[in-house]
Simulated scan of single mutants.
Amino acid sequence: MGMVATWLSVADAAPLQPTQYGDFDRYVLALSWQTGFCQSLHDSGRSEPDECRLQKEPANKADYLTVHGLWPSLPKSIAARGVDNNRWMRFGCATRPIPNMPEAKATRKCAAAETGLSLEVANKLNAVMPGAGSNTCLERYEYAKHGVCFGFDPDDYFGAMVRMNTEIKQSALGVFLADNYGKTVTRDAFNNAVAHAYGPQSVKAFKLTCSGNPAWLTEMQIAIKADAINAPLAAGSLLPQPHPGNCGDRFVIDKAGY
């Protein structure tokens, strides 16, 4: 019931619209598999944020699918100034010569400016982006790097992420992730779940990242048509990506308790 209420309230938000540099063709929605992400930090010896050390196991295991960010692709107006995709993905809104804003650094996320989120949307975001509203400051970093230069209203920007995360968790793909929590799956089985949810033509829209040996899922990145961002995800709204990721033929839907 709570997830349905969240979907309805966020769906009523204003549509996401750039006020400048709007000549891009896609967004990439980045979603973390939270237990795999935390295990990758643990195994690498890197310091773990509070949301990894203090995480509670949800009743619905699909809720481990959490929001990382929403990334507009390189606008044509910026590419025309000699900017390539690698430079755009590295610097985002700090790309020179335009948009020429302060660089958001991954090692100093809390140095980024406050987003200006309303309390209502901040509370919804905190429920699906564990690094938001904490000393991790993930939402500040994501907005400073990927949102502010487009003039996105922060409530609309993060509200779109909350909506799509909820929608995916309620889809056949979300059911697949929950049913296979802690299990080894094949990429073919994952692709079948995507096809069931969004049609076979959407399989190549998903780029998967894994870590460890044997490999476990840490993140999925989903390419979405820019002009479809405000509609429910469907077969016609996703775009193929140039690379499927590094997960290989078999990987683990990692569980908590590493």
Rank of each mutant, 00 (worst) to 15 (best):
218 T>W: 04
214 P>Y: 06
117 L>I: 11
165 N>L: 01
186 T>E: 03
219 E>M: 12
141 Y>S: 09
123 N>Q: 14
170 Q>K: 10
142 E>G: 10
152 F>H: 12
176 F>C: 04
166 T>S: 05
91 F>V: 02
206 F>T: 03
169 K>Y: 02
206 F>N: 03
98 I>A: 13
174 G>F: 06
187 R>F: 05
215 A>S: 13
91 F>T: 06
120 E>C: 01
167 E>I: 03
175 V>T: 15
161 M>R: 13
182 G>C: 10
131 G>I: 10
107 T>M: 05
203 V>E: 07
199 G>N: 03
222 I>C: 07
99 P>H: 01
132 A>H: 00
110 C>V: 09
90 R>N: 10
222 I>Q: 07
141 Y>M: 07
194 V>G: 08
163 R>L: 15
122 A>K: 15
166 T>I: 11
110 C>M: 05
125 L>P: 00
103 E>C: 01
128 V>F: 11
191 N>P: 01
172 A>L: 01
215 A>P: 15
205 A>Y: 00
105 K>C: 06
117 L>Y: 09
88 W>H: 06
120 E>T: 13
83 V>Y: 08
148 V>N: 04
210 C>L: 07
151 G>C: 06
198 Y>K: 07
121 V>Y: 05
194 V>M: 08
99 P>R: 04
96 R>T: 11
157 Y>H: 00
113 A>Q: 14
97 P>W: 11
209 T>L: 11
87 R>D: 02
172 A>C: 00
106 A>M: 10
186 T>K: 03
203 V>P: 01
179 D>Q: 15
128 V>M: 10
155 D>A: 07
183 K>Q: 15
184 T>Y: 03
191 N>C: 02
107 T>E: 13
192 N>G: 09
209 T>C: 01
132 A>R: 02
108 R>S: 13
141 Y>G: 06
209 T>N: 11
196 H>R: 14
150 F>S: 08
107 T>D: 13
115 T>S: 00
212 G>Q: 05
173 L>E: 01
148 V>A: 14
149 C>N: 00
